[in-house]
Simulated assay, not measured.
Amino acid sequence: MKIGLLTREYPPNVYGGAGVHVDFLSRELRPLVDLTVQCWGEDRRGEGGTVAYGHTPSSAMAGANPALATLSIDLSMTAAVADRDLVHSHTWYANMAGYLAKLLYGIPHVVTTHSLEPLRPWKVEQLGGGYALSCWAERTAIEHADAIIAVSHGMRSDILTVYPTVDPDRVRIVPNGIDSQLYQYTDDRSAWSKYGLDPDRPTVLFVGRVTRQKGVPHLVRAAAKFDERAQLVLCAGEPDTPELAKEFVGLVDELQSSRDGVHWIHEMLPRDEVIQLLSGATVFACPSVYEPQGIVNLEAMGCETAVVASDVGGIPDVVRNGVTGLLVPYSAADPRGFEDAFAQRVNELLENPERARAMGLAGRKRAVEEYGWGAIAARTVAIYQSLGEK
């Protein structure tokens, strides 16, 4: 079966969970199907050996709204998959290419939903009017897709709520996974020294993007109430917008003036260094206000680290409350209450490192047994085959 995988992100240009998903899924799909990958940027080869064909915006899009540039890339991707039996798109950045290929070539289109645009209204800060285009592209693709893969039960519920015309039978659940051989505990602490961190100090770690979705400002405000013995490590790239940058820098500066041990690592680190940080942390913090699944929680669990996370979206599918970590209810109507409760849960584990350690070991066991990429690829191929039989 000839499959065309359509994505914005592909190694080495991976900045979020969708990119991680495509990276590892494509490695496992390659021996199972005839696979081509269409991505943004230049042609390149992934770590698993898969060649990805790159696409860039039309020259006519210079200076245009980013959403228009995205649609021009989708046109290029559509032209590149004429020989495929089925196309599988990831995120709104590639969904329209899948939909157009379905119309043009009469082939099935599978969509994996890593998030939903209507549930991320803060993106208007980035896209302006382009946000209306991104919502339209996603809605059109999802409503007409032959199968929709949700990465969690929460994500499936969101799809059926946001897009009520979608037939529930078309929405399948296939979670994000983890390479448990790659994401496993290491006692290497060279990255800790490199970034001026104390490996012997209780540590709360965040790894991710500085976006409204990830709730990082909530974490920084909560950290004012963390046990004073602990250090906070924010492994995060630059904020999405100038407005968020101003807010976030101000919060970090204020926190650093009131307590020591607050570290902001601005660049996105190589995977081996992230694994070192995850392995040495006492608690991994995930304060997201919206999260279809939260693959980074799996990565922390793979490295035997307890998780404190928001009880939103698909996170409860991954983090077992009281077993592999602690969940904190989130309400947009009471952000300060959420921050206080988050600090309390973090402190529970900082004050009881034996409990945190036990949760980390339970998390590792769960990640290995339930989230292997081989099984996830097999379930994905089964969906492809079911559509090919129709």
Rank of each mutant, 00 (worst) to 15 (best):
Asp74Ile: 00
Val289Trp: 11
Glu243Phe: 05
Ile275Cys: 10
Arg320His: 12
Thr324Tyr: 15
Arg221Lys: 08
Leu298Met: 10
Leu35Cys: 07
Tyr10Ser: 02
Leu29Ala: 05
Tyr99Cys: 00
Thr282Pro: 02
Gly294Arg: 01
Val216Tyr: 14
Gln276Lys: 07
Ala356Glu: 12
Tyr185Leu: 15
Lys225Trp: 05
Val210Arg: 05
Glu125Asp: 15
Arg229Tyr: 12
Pro31Gln: 14
Ala356Ser: 14
Pro108Trp: 09
Pro66His: 03
Glu42Trp: 00
Leu219Ala: 10
Leu71Met: 09
Val381Asn: 10
Lys390Ile: 11
Val262Lys: 00
Val252Glu: 04
Val328Ser: 06
Glu228Gln: 15
Gly129Phe: 09
His88Asp: 03
Gly314Asp: 14
Leu277Gly: 10
Arg209Val: 11
Arg209Leu: 07
Pro164Lys: 02
Ile159Tyr: 06
Lys214Ser: 06
Leu251Ala: 14
Asp34Arg: 12
Ala333Lys: 06
Thr186Met: 15
Thr78Asn: 01
Gln38Thr: 01
Ala285Glu: 02
Asp311Thr: 05
Leu103Lys: 03
Ser72Asp: 01
Gly237Trp: 04
Gly16Phe: 15
Arg139Ser: 08
Glu291Pro: 07
Val151Thr: 07
Ser115Val: 00
Leu5Glu: 10
Ile159His: 02
Ala223His: 08
Thr50Phe: 12
Gly46Ala: 09
Tyr131Thr: 01
Ile148Lys: 01
Glu339Arg: 04
Arg366Asp: 15
Asp198His: 04
Arg379Ser: 15
Glu267Met: 04
Glu348Phe: 02
Asp158Lys: 03
Ser257Gln: 14
Arg366Trp: 13
Asp85Met: 01
Gly363Tyr: 09
Gly49Ala: 12
Glu247Gln: 11
Glu138Lys: 04
Glu354Pro: 04
Glu339Met: 05
Gly130Leu: 08
Ser258Phe: 01
Glu370Tyr: 15
Ser386Pro: 10
Pro31Glu: 12
His55Ile: 03
Thr140Pro: 00
Cys286Ile: 04
Gly215Tyr: 14
Ala333Trp: 07
Gly63Leu: 06
Ala94Val: 02
Ser193Met: 02
Gly374Arg: 06
Gly128Pro: 06
Ser134Gly: 13
Val307Tyr: 10
Ile173Arg: 12
Tyr185Lys: 13
Gly302Arg: 04
Ala97Thr: 02
Val283Tyr: 13
Thr186His: 13
Met96Gln: 08
Gly41Arg: 06
Met96Tyr: 06
Ala132Ser: 12
Ala64Arg: 10
Arg45Trp: 10
Gly46Pro: 06
Glu369Phe: 05
Ala52Glu: 05
Leu32His: 09
Leu100Ile: 10
Asp334Cys: 02
Ile149Arg: 00
Ala309Asp: 01
Ile173Gly: 04
His109Phe: 15
Met301Trp: 08
Asp200Val: 01
Pro168Met: 09
Leu387Ile: 14
Gly237Asn: 03
Arg201Glu: 00
Ile265Met: 06
Val81Asn: 02
Glu238Phe: 11
His218Ala: 12
Ser152Cys: 08
Ser331Pro: 07
Phe206Ser: 01
Val20Trp: 13
Ser386Asn: 06
Leu116Pro: 03
